[in-house]
């Protein structure tokens, strides 16, 4: 070992190992200098606003998770087709809102989405793939129209959109992950019960929309 440093030794007599490496990385991160001169403003804030927005409304959260749950019940290929369909059609709804095309009964549409998607999960309905995609896509327009345009002034629209789409996709992922319990009989019953609860919550939203 003469003239060489063993793997367990390093500079200043400190032992090299995963914890020391981690500590070094953490120290580097903590001591990082702030970024200067990046002229695009409102980037991080826009992203965080977009990321937070879908999870800030229970109606949106329940509908998104229901899409994932229903996909898990339907199995392949619906389990991935529905989460692919939803963000694209939702973005179309957001596009309509952004260019100023009005959509009547947005709040009612969102509430109905929770009712119907909840019912689909509760009844473990298995329509054709096209019918399922059409149902999910139809309600996605309302969600996009209502939530896709709510960008606070001074924030980046692009970053808001990225955050918004990622958060929505992650909510679908949560639904699909929960839907894994569908493999077990008790899990099946639990999913159906959860679907019924979502439908009931949707009725509450519907009541509020008409009130």
């Amino acid at each position: 070992m003469k003239g060489r440093v063993s793997r367990t030794e390093s500079w200043a007599g400190l032992k090299a190992g995963p914890y020391n490496s981690l500590l070094a990385v953490l120290m580097l991160l903590v001591s990082a200098a702030p970024a200067f001169a990046h002229v695009q403003q409102g980037q991080a804030q826009g992203f965080l606003t977009g990321l937070r927005h879908p999870v800030s409304g229970l109606d949106h959260v329940l509908a998104m998770i229901s899409v994932g749950l229903w996909g898990a019940q339907l199995g392949a290929p619906a389990v991935w087709l529905l989460p692919v369909t939803f963000p694209m059609v939702m973005a179309f709804g957001g596009f309509l809102g952004l260019v100023g095309i009005p959509l009547p009964g947005v709040e009612v549409g969102i509430a109905l989405s929770a009712v119907l998607l909840g019912l689909m999960v509760a009844r473990e309905a298995k329509p054709s793939l096209v019918a399922a995609a059409l149902l999910v896509g139809f309600f996605a327009i309302f969600h996009g129209h209502a939530h896709g345009t709510e960008l606070p002034p001074g924030q980046s629209g692009l970053m808001y959109s990225i955050g918004f789409v990622i958060a929505t996709g992650c909510l679908h992922g949560v639904g699909i992950a929960i839907g894994v319990v569908h493999k077990w009989p008790a899990g099946k019953a639990a999913l159906r019960f959860a679907g019924a609860l979502v439908a009931l919550a949707g009725l509450g939203f519907l009541w509020r929309a008409f009130a």
């Binding site: 991935w80 989460p83 692919v84 369909t85 963000p87 694209m88 939702m90 973005a91 179309f92 957001g94 596009f95 309509l96 809102g97 952004l98 260019v99 100023g100 896709g148 345009t149 960008l151 629209g157 692009l158 959109s161 990225i162 918004f164 789409v165 990622i166 996709g169």
Partner: peptide, 24 residues
């Protein structure tokens, strides 16, 4: 591979929203 396709749909959705922001 399906996860990659899902990411692709997210990119398209972001593009559509970006177009909306640009037109707005």
């Amino acid at each position: 591979r399906i996860a990659v396709r899902v990411v692709g749909s997210w990119v398209a959705a972001i593009g559509l929203l970006m177009l909306g922001w640009s037109l707005r």
